[in-house]
Design a binder for these strands. Structure first.
Length: 864
RNA sequence: ACCCGGGUGGUGGAACUGGUAGACACGCAGGACUUAAAAUCCUGUUUGCAGCAAUGCAAGUGUGGGUUCAACUCCCAUCCCGGGUACCA
């Protein structure tokens, strides 16, 4: 009997299914263990070999824990709302619900093929109304909450309204948003004023924010859809536009998100990424009065280095700063307008990345240094962002490199406050220098001067101590179709929550996925859905939808009680399963999903719906399995280069050149081959310099490539337009469908290679199905684990799978002989044998607890 | 540009706390079995030099410096690759 993996795996998979072997109960005497994977987005490309890496690791862990006597929750589901489905719908007209369903069917069968021990009875889909009903419900809880900084928790907005009625908003002290009002004031405010004020406290709120607006497409674009400032589709210009948006007030949780990290087991790198994202800094907010225009106005800046205040030589406002229009002098108006126009076309990334290129404009206005009365010119520049701090900085060129470069570029004189620590060549951001030219701070060590300066500022009422966070509130609306509708209706322009008993607000069916007027989402086109017949006034629905991370911010709770139609999850269930014990997923979610889901958990905890405020006790980051992309190089047929050579174009002849021949130095052979194959052409037109840049790099499906060598015939068959393509091979000979002349034995077409994310568009995905079919799920699983540490990113390579498969066959033969059948016996093992066995068991157990599966597999191989 | 990872034979990787670099596997080469092939088994395999050989000598963990009796491991600098950078998921 040989190792018939197909029969074995089929047998067991059917048995598991028939017996619901992995269905888990919420009631058990055993200790619980919750092993969770980041659920996949069901993309049209299907599952690729990168997905299962984490799933296999967690599945091994889940099985291990079951064997160790735990009641293990190990579920799977789909993050099924998202942009790609909608783009696909735009291109093909197929409804996202249909394509998503198809994709899920594919994913499910692929997952089952690999033999996971998921409890499929708990499957969730974020796009299912019975699921997003509760996403909407949780959104309403967040909308109906405010953050009490005194008690340090979220509370129902009704309690805030009561407080306003009783004593106004003065009791909020440092956290007053906007103006202070009394109970009497509150009484007098009309409905709109009251709602506007409440909006400034709600944890989910509307405000104006910037979007990528593409006028030509009439739509708002995701950052991903903008390439080098133009739209990916069509290459139209993109600019920024202010639009009303929904936000999550995640900044209210900044401190708790930071402190919560101490209570969970994430890698240090992960914690550091989250810490840096939150970006806590301690410093001071200082108001610099303006010298002339705008009495009473001042420039409020945030700085972590108030000790350097005597070194301020200029100030910089973000171009979007409110003051810019108010303080700009008539002489400077033109320059400022021009600069603002330029900034409008720049993405935030570009603004921060291209620091070598210094840009800015002078407003003509000056501020006054509150300590020495010096006049300070006020500039605007794109390196200051409106969203961070106060959107304005005090520039100290001798201590900050960007300020220094700016001063040099615009010839602004530099004041030296650190003596010999400043060499005039570059800024020195030290805190260890003694201050000079610094008034009352003279002679003080900078490190000590920070608190002295802050104290003085507070004492004189010029500023105050301030903790600042770099993190911004999270944009929560998308002008798209395929997402959760907001449970929000507008009456006279004021947003109100939909009654909970009317949930879910179902996503209506549309026939067109094109954007609505003014960049609104496609839902705006469905007037009969948007307009709700009301008693008197205009009542309409919110037409934005929620972003991709809405559904994924709480799905781990739904798995605990997936069929409950009374609540998102029964408290008994969430109490029992509690925190996720091990969460497996990639680092690409480090600052998105992992922060949002932590925030939602904290809100639900504050409101008393669950009894833990960190969702994930332990996080294991599986490395990304990258695709190894292959490229072919096609001679460009575009004008003007090939203008004279209609022959090639008319005949649809494509010429591909092997990787190492695309460089200039080897083009001589290339001309020769062109001439040989197309004697009717005059080839003297070729200009070497130009030709070298005239190869288009095209993705070729990795499955048509063996290592780096292209399977030319398979490639020709893959697309009709390639059927009569010519290939200039590595040795300069030609593989041509017209003639085989010049083709030599062993000449190959070599592809270019690059490592990048696995994706459909890059044609570098490897489908696990084929590997499972050929080698079996056990080989596939074991191989993925053997590839290297789970945490490490690595390009996929199928080469080594044979070795693992051979090992499993060898293992099988220890028990079954092809001829004799069963060959095991019950001889008593020797002490030495037992020693090896137990040593191996110990090693594998320890490695399994630590997710070091690659070394566990090695140990197993050595033992056998 | 910034934040977080990573770089070790022909290849994936191992080396746990600073102590024999290259476990295990792939690939490759040679051999056994076979009419043949596949499968299987055995042997060799970091590089260079010397030797019939056992073996010996030297170099070697991206690059350049440093600390140490001892460095893949610690420190400084630098290059390259991957992930993220707030509307891809």
């Amino acid at each position: 009997m040989e190792y018939n993996f197909r029969k074995i795996e089929k047998h067991w998979q059917e048995k598991w299914k028939a017996e619901n072997a992995y269905t888990v109960s919420n009631h058990s005497e055993k200790p619980k263990c919750y092993v969770l994977d980041m659920f996949p987005y069901p993309s049209g490309a299907g599952l690729h070999v990168g997905h299962p890496l984490g799933y296999i690791a967690s599945d091994i862990y889940a099985r291990f824990k079951r064997l160790k006597g735990f009641n293990v929750l190990h579920p799977m589901g789909y993050d099924s709302f998202g942009l790609p489905a909608e783009q696909y719908a735009l291109e093909t007209g197929q409804h996202p619900a249909t394509t998503t369903q198809n994709n899920i069917t594919t994913f499910r069968s692929q997952l089952e093929n690999i033999g996971f021990s998921f409890d499929w009875s708990r499957e969730v889909r974020t796009s299912d109304p019975s699921y997003y009903r509760w996403t909407q419900w949780i959104f309403l809880q967040i909308f109906n909450s405010w953050y009490d900084h005194e008690k340090n928790k979220a509370r129902p907005i009704s309690e805030l309204i009561e407080a306003f009625e009783k004593e106004g908003n003065g009791f909020l002290k440092d956290h007053v948003a906007g103006d202070i009002f009394s109970a009497e004031d509150w009484e007098i405010f009309d409905e709109k004023q009251q709602q506007d004020i409440l909006m400034q406290y709600r944890l989910a709120y509307t405000a104006y924010g910037e979007v990528n607006w593409c006028a030509a497409l009439g739509t708002v674009l995701a950052n991903d859809e903008v390439i080098n400032g133009v739209s990916e589709r069509g290459g139209h210009p993109v600019e920024k536009k202010q639009m009303r948006q929904w936000y999550m007030r995640i900044t209210a949780y900044a401190e708790r998100l930071l402190q919560g990290l101490d209570t969970v087991s994430f890698s240090d790198a992960m914690k550091e990424m989250q810490k840096n994202w939150i970006g806590k800094s301690e410093g001071a907010e200082i108001v610099f009065p303006l010298s002339t225009r705008g009495e009473g106005l001042g420039v409020r800046v945030y700085t972590t280095r108030p000790d350097t205040i005597f070194g301020v030589d200029f100030m910089v406002l973000a171009p979007e700063h409110d003051l810019v229009s108010k303080i700009t002098t008539a002489e400077q108006q033109h320059a400022i307008n021009e600069y603002l126009q330029y900034v409008k076309s720049r993405s935030e990334r570009e603004r921060l990345a291209e620091v070598k290129q210094i840009t800015g404009a002078f407003t003509g206005a000056h501020a006054i240094n509150p300590f020495d009365g010096r006049l300070i010119p006020i500039w605007i520049s794109e390196y200051v962002l409106a969203g961070y701090g106060t959107g304005a900085i005090m520039a100290v060129p001798c201590g900050d490199q960007r300020d220094f470069a700016f001063a040099k570029h615009f010839n602004i004189p530099i004041t030296n406050i650190i003596g010999e620590h400043f060499n005039g060549e570059e800024a020195n951001p030290t805190t260890e220098a003694y201050l000079s030219n610094s008034g009352f701070l003279d002679g003080m060590l900078m490190r000590d001067a920070i608190s002295v300066a802050t104290a003085k500022l507070e004492q004189e009422g010029l500023g105050k101590r301030k903790i600042n966070y770099k993190m911004r509130d999270a944009g929560f609306s998308r002008q798209r179709y395929w997402g959760e509708p907001f449970p929000i209706i507008y009456k006279e322009g004021i947003p109100y929550p939909v009654d909970e008993k009317d949930l879910p607000v179902e996503l209506p069916h549309v026939d067109s996925y094109s954007p609505g007027p003014e960049g609104q989402g496609p839902l705006a086109n469905i007037t009969e859905w948007v307009l709700i017949p009301g008693p008197s006034s205009l009542v309409e629905r919110e037409t934005n939808t929620m972003p991709g991370y809405a559904g994924s911010s709480w799905y781990f709770l739904r798995y605990m009680d997936p069929h409950n139609d009374q609540t998102f999850a029964d408290k008994k269930a969430t109490d029992y399963w509690n925190q996720v014990d091990v969460y497996v997923g990639g680092t690409e979610h480090a600052v998105g999903h992992l922060l949002y889901s932590r925030m939602w958990t904290k809100v639900l905890f504050d409101l008393g719906y669950i009894s833990f405020d960190e969702p994930f006790k332990k996080l294991v980051n599986q490395g990304m399995i990258q695709g190894s992309s292959r490229f072919v190089y096609r001679l460009s047929m575009s004008k003007p280069f090939f203008d004279d050579y209609d022959f090639l174009r008319e005949n649809g002849i494509q010429i591909f050149v092997s990787n190492n021949l695309k460089e200039k130095h080897s083009l001589a052979g290339f001309f020769e081959t062109i001439r040989m194959n197309f004697p009717q052409l005059d080839y003297s037109f070729f200009d070497m310099e130009i030709v070298s840049q005239r190869f288009l790099k095209l993705y070729v499906n990795v499955n048509l490539v063996d290592g780096v060598e292209l399977d030319i015939n398979a490639f020709r068959k893959s697309k009709p337009e390639y059927s009569n393509a010519h290939f200039i091979l590595e040795d300069g000979s030609v593989n041509s469908p017209l003639s085989t002349r010049g083709e030599r034995q062993g000449a190959r077409y070599i592809c270019g290679v690059e490592t990048e994310k696995m994706s459909k568009s890059k044609l570098n995905t490897i489908n696990p199905d084929e590997l499972v079919l050929k080698y079996g799920a056990d080989t596939f699983r074991m191989y993925e684990m053997f590839l290297g540490p789970v945490e490490q990113s690595k390009p996929w390579d199928t080469k080594g799978i044979e070795g693992v498969h051979r090992f499993l066959r060898k293992l099988w033969r220890l028990y079954y002989d092809e001829v004799k059948g069963q060959v095991w016996n019950d001889y008593k093992p020797t002490n030495d044998e037992l020693k090896i066995l137990h040593r191996t068991i110990k090693k594998i157990e320890e490695d399994t607890e630590h997710f070091s599966y690659n070394t566990a597999v090695s140990a197993f191989m050595v033992c056998v």
